[in-house]
Amino acid sequence: MSPTDEELVRALRGGHMDAFDALYDRYERRLYGYIRRIVKDPCAAEDLFQEVFLTVLRDRTYDPARGRFAAWLFMVARNRCLADMRRRRTREGLKGEVEARWRPPAPESPERLVGDASRVHAAIAALPEGQRQLILLKQLGELTYREIAGLLGVAEGTIKSRLHAATAALRRLLADGPPPTKKTQGT
């Protein structure tokens, strides 16, 4: 039987690098995918991925007896991603607005229209931020309703109903395609 995440964390703290390899293999695709879906810039996503992984592994305050490693990992990832987005928005807010106003709109990427993965990416991107977070935490983080509720600080029933709505919205977007992007060119 393969060891649990919590056992691997304990082994890693005891100096066993094999435990790191096992944990990394288990989470690299899901965690990086989660960060990439939220932070669009791949370089920033790589930095965040590294930061999150190291933070979680180095943090000795994490007690495996209190909760699953996955919930802890994705909670840190979510907080870091949101902090990064806020920082970027603040830094580039006015500059981006001005540029978007005067720049001609980018042509529709062929990837957006062709291929299932691109269709799914477009549908995820078209979801409101809250719904996107819920879908990604559920699907990529494989967190339970209870864990997501604890992470977001709301009732479990609220998460259940919000996730139902998010799933329905995602399926609508997958079926109908995301709405066309707003043209922001100045008049």
Binding site: M17, F20, Y32, G33, Y34, E46, F49, D116, A117, H121
Partner: peptide, 20 residues
């Protein structure tokens, strides 16, 4: 399942080496 398949993505190998 389509969401899961499309959303997962492996980071570059260099990232793994750095973290390790």
């Amino acid at each position: 399942d389509g969401v899961l398949e499309a959303a997962v993505e492996a980071p570059p190998q260099a990232v793994r080496r750095r973290i390790r």
